[in-house]
Computed example of a mutant assay.
Amino acid sequence: MNLQFFCPRWGSEDLPYEVFFEKVKEAGYDGVEMALPLDEDERDEIVGLMKQFKLLLIGQHWECSLSATETYEPDYEKYLRNLAAVKPLFINSQSGKDFFAQAHNVQIIQLADRIARETGVKIVHETHRGKFSYAIGMMASYLKALPDLRLCADFSHWCVVSESLLEAPEQEAMLREVFPRVDHIHARVGFQQAPQVSEPKAPEFQEALDRHLAWWDSIVKMHIEQGKEYLTITPEVGPAPYMPQLPFVCEPLTNQWEANCFMMHLLRDHFA
């Protein structure tokens, strides 16, 4: 099975697209995970430039984080259809709200399913704080209500929400239910007090890294057993304020770009 690694645009927004894509290609990534502007001309120009560098695209939706209840679905559909129009490999969506009723969140995901059928572009839903999937303890009812639900695994969020490394028997049982639903991995290491360790190669975070590696091992193993052709992974160490900073001077403790490249090479070697 082929592992494909994608670079987040998040944290490199200051770079012109051409410079960013060239940097991504030289670093050895297979593609980019990113949102796209709603202006069609600007969107298509960015995608055309990406293709010149022979990079794949995972569309990323996160923009509805500020949408009010009454405007959520129209905004959600607008952003998803905008991404689907350029035919990415698939779309990874931060969907729903932690304060929406489950029935409302289910309707939102069913809307995504309809858009996926109409456009032919698969949509997966990221496990993420503030969204329908904000906590591992909430997932059982959603897996039951949505038998076709496909996920992007970013378990760092569940660690900080639960203040744990998901080692309780009930949490481990739910992880075993979630693993078969995962089609994409966000390889960021979280721990009990934050969604991101300050440095993934630091020895004080070895336990957290090992826990995440074990979860990703299980997902990779399932994909191999199912005969899948590929699995996509985005190392997603984030910039400040995700990245802890020195007080007063506000300097990040770690270089984000280097940390993501470290995660990519670590995982290439780990799964080799």
Rank of each mutant, 00 (worst) to 15 (best):
M222L: 15
A208M: 07
V182Y: 01
H184P: 10
V220N: 06
M222S: 01
G190Y: 07
L175Q: 10
E163K: 15
E167Y: 12
S162Y: 00
H223D: 05
D217A: 00
L213F: 00
V182P: 02
V189N: 05
E170G: 03
F191P: 09
D217F: 09
Q193M: 09
R188P: 01
D183I: 00
R181E: 09
S218Q: 13
M174Q: 11
A173I: 13
D217S: 10
Q196K: 03
V220W: 05
Q171W: 07
V178M: 04
I185Y: 02
V197C: 08
H184V: 01
E204F: 04
R188N: 06
V182K: 02
K201Q: 13
L166D: 00
F179S: 05
M174S: 09
E199N: 14
W216H: 12
L165S: 04
S198M: 10
S162V: 08
E172T: 14
V220C: 10
V182G: 01
L165A: 08
E163T: 14
Q192W: 09
L213G: 01
A194D: 09
V178N: 04
A187T: 07
P200K: 00
E207I: 12
H223L: 07
S198H: 05
P195Q: 08
F205G: 00
K201L: 02
E167Q: 14
P169S: 09
R181G: 09
S164Y: 06
V160L: 02
P169K: 03
V160K: 10
L165E: 10
L166Q: 06
R211H: 13
A208V: 05
E199M: 14
A187I: 06
K201G: 07
Q196T: 02
M174V: 14
R211F: 12
L165G: 02
V189G: 03
Q171D: 15
D183F: 10
K201T: 03
L165H: 00
S198K: 07
L213D: 04
H223P: 10
M174H: 05
R211W: 08
A194Q: 07
A208W: 06
F191Q: 03
M222Y: 06
H223F: 07
P180S: 00
R188G: 02
L213W: 03
P200Q: 00
K221E: 15
A202K: 05
A168M: 14
A168P: 09
M174A: 11
P169L: 12
E207M: 10
K221F: 05
D183Q: 12
Q192G: 03
P169I: 11
W216Y: 15
A168H: 15
W215Q: 01
R181P: 01
F191C: 11
V161M: 14
L209E: 02
V161E: 15
S162W: 07
E177G: 05
E207H: 10
A194R: 03
L166I: 03
